[in-house]
Design a protein around this nucleic acid. Structure first.
Lengths: 237, 237
DNA sequence: GCAATCTTGATTGTCGACAATGCGACAAAA
DNA sequence: TTTTGTCGCATTGTCGACAATCAAGATTGC
């Protein structure tokens, strides 16, 4: 499974670590609905630990913005309104753009070859046309993970994968309609890889930013819940 | 004091919160030297709390990368080698570039006026030429804080101010030679503000990125400790 | 003299109990 | 009927004690 995050066996895992993974997974996958109020005791009982470790878990997930806490009141699972999600996509645009730029100069030839192999896999799955949305969902993240890692910037990778992407993954379970333009997205992926192979950092950054910007606009028009004080008549006409 | 982060009085503060602020400040200001090994009991005694709240504090500072922890072994204060610091500046370049872009369209006229006032203050202090480095040090951060807030992107501001800037501030205490080009930096600040006033997001982003990129190159040549396996002769010639 | 093993000390991980705080229900008064 | 004050319960915040683990020094055998 790719969800294990490929941790080294040598790292000893504590009760809190296991509970962290379990709770995080339940939140990301929506097993615990967004906005749900959770109590320390309940969570502790649910994951078979005491309140001590569970408090640690809560603090860590709080700093990852997966939980929201009010002192002396309680904790609830984070809820992503479309506005907040759009904010996150601006973050992705900036950070992954930089990642693509750095990847163009820092990636080894073997890594680039791996990217091409991944791309080929996705294009083949695309031909099969079965469960496209799901494969594309995970495959898309795989692609982005690789580019991020390819930047060889540990701080950048940590911020993206260790903090931002949990929320992105959660949003994909919350708002189901994600991979609506898989063919176009795949083309854009290929363009990005080609720019990286050409060692053209500027181009790679620009393409990645456009790629993510389009994804953002896609979700923005998708869930258009509260047209605040704007008159829609003009557009409709 | 500006260090209080201007929190609302209504937010109740717990023991752990106070200990967090105190320890964080001691780490950022270098009162506890980078790399120092710290034990939970010692810290708990030092800040007058029990080990429970102190463990929470440690977990939170760990996620802010101010502490590094190994399970069953212990915790030590983060040490910033120049390479890691450069990584952080690439993050700043990406994120604050985006912040400047968004600020150009999102900032209100009053906020822009405030930016100009701040700029005027700094230029006046610059004229006095007394303790330039220190003023510039804090003033520089004030400027960047304002642009970040001006983006009106809560997630972006939170990531920059709530996570990245503690490390940046710490680096300024660790590597003393920071504000080596205050006049040039001030000119660049003014350019950025003018781009924001002109509502030119693209230009504001470009200028901010160049501004931070120059700061990065500045620290890179400053502390040049380990030229790994690169031959410097060609560049020197 | 050197290496492998054991023991010891300290530190972290975990747990249950107690104190402090906030929220909601209920009742009483306007 | 509405509002306000009070009470009680549930949840969080805090603490001290016990168990598990690791690092280092002492010991023993070769």
């Amino acid at each position: 499974m790719s969800e294990a995050e490929a941790k080294l066996e040598t790292a000893p895992r504590t009760l809190a670590d296991r509970a962290l993974d379990a709770l995080q997974d339940d939140i990301v996958r929506g097993v615990i609905a967004p906005g749900t109020r959770v109590s320390e005791s309940d969570l502790a009982a649910r994951y078979g630990v005491s309140r001590g470790p569970m408090r640690e878990v809560i603090r860590r997930l709080e700093s990852r913005k997966l939980l929201e806490r009010k002192v002396h009141v309680g904790t609830r699972v984070a809820a992503l309104d479309p506005a907040r999600l759009a904010e996150l996509y601006y973050l992705r645009e900036a950070l992954e753009g930089m990642a693509a730029r750095m990847a163009a100069t820092a990636m080894g030839d073997d890594e680039i070859a791996g990217l091409y192999r991944l791309l080929a896999e996705h294009e083949q799955q695309q031909d099969l046309k079965e469960d496209v949305a799901y494969f594309q969902r995970e495959g898309d993240l795989d692609f982005h993970y690789r580019v991020i890692q390819g930047s060889h910037n540990a701080a950048l990778a940590d911020m993206l994968i260790g903090e931002l992407y949990y929320l992105i993954r959660m949003s994909r379970y919350q708002f189901s309609g994600v991979a609506k333009r898989p063919l176009q997205a795949l083309k854009e992926h290929r363009q990005i890889v080609e720019a990286i192979e050409a060692r053209d950092g500027e181009l790679a950054e620009m393409l990645m930013r456009r790629h993510i910007s389009r994804a953002r606009r896609n979700i923005e028009v998708d869930n258009r819940p509260a047209p605040q004080n704007r008159n829609l008549k003009e557009e409709r006409t």
